[in-house]
Design a protein around this nucleic acid. Structure first.
Length: 360
DNA sequence: AATACGGGGAA
DNA sequence: TTCCCAGTATT
């Protein structure tokens, strides 16, 4: 017969959860990530935005470069949109960068350069939702606040055996409720880091290391022997394909014509080659830019995949006889591969520029 | 409530 | 291949 431990009996289960997690974090948690050094609202914000839908190892080099160039909120607010997007090129979800810049300007001009201190104040800013606001409150302000990102969703869905795809609002509500239930009032910054770390290192999507997990004894799915059944997969849906031609117009100076994309669309604010759907339109399309396409050659197509469709793009190399004419359009520039502008460009374009530089 | 939005990495 | 990820904004 084991004598009852009065302290444990009086400790609510929600507190046991965070205590175990914190003990584990002290032993095995990550404490040397670049954004963990001197956390300020600014650095937590930048890192959290970058980490949205993007994994740690991908973010690290971007974060280092970004903070070196924009060390504080004022530097970011005063930078050009092109430069901000330039430092985001390759990370994806470029609306994140546009919103980051927008929010920096709002805080500088309307908040005297000081971040809002409440969850609601933070959530009112472009690009900051419930989870990111919670992360800033918890990590930068040490206020008791909850987060719910991909890792936390997985940990909680398994621990509570919460069914359903996390994209369903019903499932999401249950997950938020669980997140709030376990959020402690003490050591909130470490706890927030701990539950994310657990999801990233032990409670992984496949082959979770439950034998090392500090909360496996209370984990419903572990007890049931089916942790990998949670969270439920997203309903599968076939994604369509789209084919386009990238018109790569090269003028007599060896510069390339590039066009800025509308800010609120795919690749918004980034610079790409003009596109056309049919090869028959190449000549007409070039005319629109004041270029007379004499000859062109079509390069083999490549595929770039988004979450919602595949893009098959065929580069069309066009030698233009036109000079470096003034186009008088704000959405057009001549790009010199040897003196590159600091502008944002999506992956297929940066890939093509590398190829072009090699071959021409 | 459903969809749009990038790119990388794991299996 | 297919799935998923340190989500938010828009429709």
């Amino acid at each position: 017969m084991i004598s009852p431990d009065s302290e444990k009996i009086l400790t609510p289960q929600s507190d046991i959860f965070s205590i175990k997690l914190l003990q584990w974090f002290d032993m095995f948690g990550r404490k040397d990530l670049p954004w963990q050094k001197n956390p300020s609202a600014y650095s937590v914000w930048v890192s959290e935005i970058m980490l949205q839908q993007t994994q740690v190892n991908t973010v690290i080099p971007y974060y280092d470069r970004f903070m070196k160039t924009f060390p504080d909120l004022e530097a970011l607010a005063q930078a050009s949109e092109n430069k901000v997007l330039h430092h985001w090129s390759g990370l994806g979800y470029y609306a994140r960068a546009s919103n980051l810049h927008k929010t920096a300007k709002i805080i500088l001009s309307h908040y005297q350069g000081v971040f809002p201190e409440t969850q609601e104040g933070l959530e009112s800013l472009p690009g900051i939702g419930r989870s990111t606001a919670g992360a800033i409150c918890a990590i930068a302000y040490k206020k008791s606040a909850s987060i719910l990102d991909g890792n936390v969703k997985r940990v909680l869905a398994r621990h509570e055996s919460i069914d359903g795809w996390t994209g369903h609002s019903k499932t999401l509500k249950l997950l938020w409720k669980a997140a709030e239930n376990y959020t402690p009032t003490e050591r909130i910054a470490d706890y927030t880091q701990a539950i994310m770390d657990l999801g990233a290192t032990l409670c992984t999507r496949s082959k979770p290391k439950c034998h090392k997990c500090p909360i496996s004894d209370s984990c419903k799915s572990f007890i049931a022997g089916n942790p990998e059944n949670y969270p439920k997969k997203k309903p599968t849906k076939k994604i369509p394909s789209k084919s386009v031609y990238f018109l790569i117009m090269i003028n007599l100076d060896g510069k390339l014509l590039m066009q800025k994309r509308p800010i609120n669309q795919l690749w918004g604010g980034l610079w790409t080659f003009p596109e056309c759907d049919n090869i028959a339109e190449v000549s007409n399309s070039c005319d629109e830019f004041g270029q007379s396409a004499k000859t062109w050659s079509i390069l083999p197509s490549s595929r770039h995949s988004f979450s919602h469709y595949h893009l098959d793009y065929s580069p069309v190399m066009i030698k233009s006889v036109a000079q470096n004419i003034e186009l008088n359009r704000k959405d057009i520039l001549w790009y010199d591969p040897n003196k590159p502008h600091e502008i944002g460009m999506p992956k297929p374009v940066t890939d093509l520029l590398v190829e072009i530089k090699k071959r021409y």
